[in-house]
């Protein structure tokens, strides 16, 4: 058997160890290895190198984890503070819903009473409630769910520049 022949199989062994080869080539390699002592030795030495790489155990300072975590605490808080937070958005949206409903409720139940107390027309009370209560609440309700999306888009733009 010539050297080139061994070399091609030894290259196949390298390929097999580095990233895998097709089943067909693996079969051909196996058949060759059954009868070729130099290539068997090549594969055996390669396997021992790989196994040997697993025989190192590097000392790690037992305080390293704690030191790392301490150094991460403050930046992590800053990242958290920069987050809009889903919970906050949910609470603001809920408050806006309640305010909108509250405005409508006041108009329906107490509109006439308010008109009588202030000696104004019922329609004027309704317009006042709409302008200063219901519409601002609706505006907040519609606008705030969009803010987290706007904030996320801003963050992505910043990351894109890194």
């Amino acid at each position: 058997m010539n050297t080139d022949h061994h070399e091609s199989f030894q290259h196949m062994i390298d390929e097999s160890l580095a990233g895998g080869i097709s089943a067909e080539r693996e079969q051909s390699l196996r058949e060759h290895l059954d009868t070729c002592a130099p290539c068997q030795e090549y594969r055996s030495a390669s396997n021992r190198v790989i196994a040997g790489l697993g025989g190192f155990s590097f000392e790690v300072d037992p305080t390293l984890n704690a030191r790392v975590l301490v150094s991460l605490r403050l930046p992590a808080q800053q990242v958290q503070a920069a987050q809009p937070g889903r919970r906050r958005w949910a609470l603001i949206s809920l408050a806006a819903v309640l305010l909108t409903m509250g405005g409508s409720f006041v108009d329906l139940k107490f509109g006439s009473l308010i008109a009588a107390v202030f000696d104004i027309q019922r329609m004027q009370v309704r317009q006042g409630l709409l302008a200063f209560w219901i519409v601002p609440s609706l505006f907040v309700l519609l606008l705030f769910p969009l803010l987290p999306l706007l904030s996320k888009a801003g963050t992505r733009r910043e990351e894109g520049t890194l």
Binding site: H11, D14, E15, L17, A18, G19, Q40, E41, Y42, S44, A45, S46, N47, R48, V49, I50, G52
Partner: peptide, 20 residues
């Protein structure tokens, strides 16, 4: 891939002529 082959080739002589 080439770096892996070359790395293995450099270390392999440590076990040349021996069986596992």
């Amino acid at each position: 891939a080439s770096r892996i082959y070359r790395g293995l080739a450099t270390l392999r002589p440590q076990f040349k002529g021996e069986t596992a």
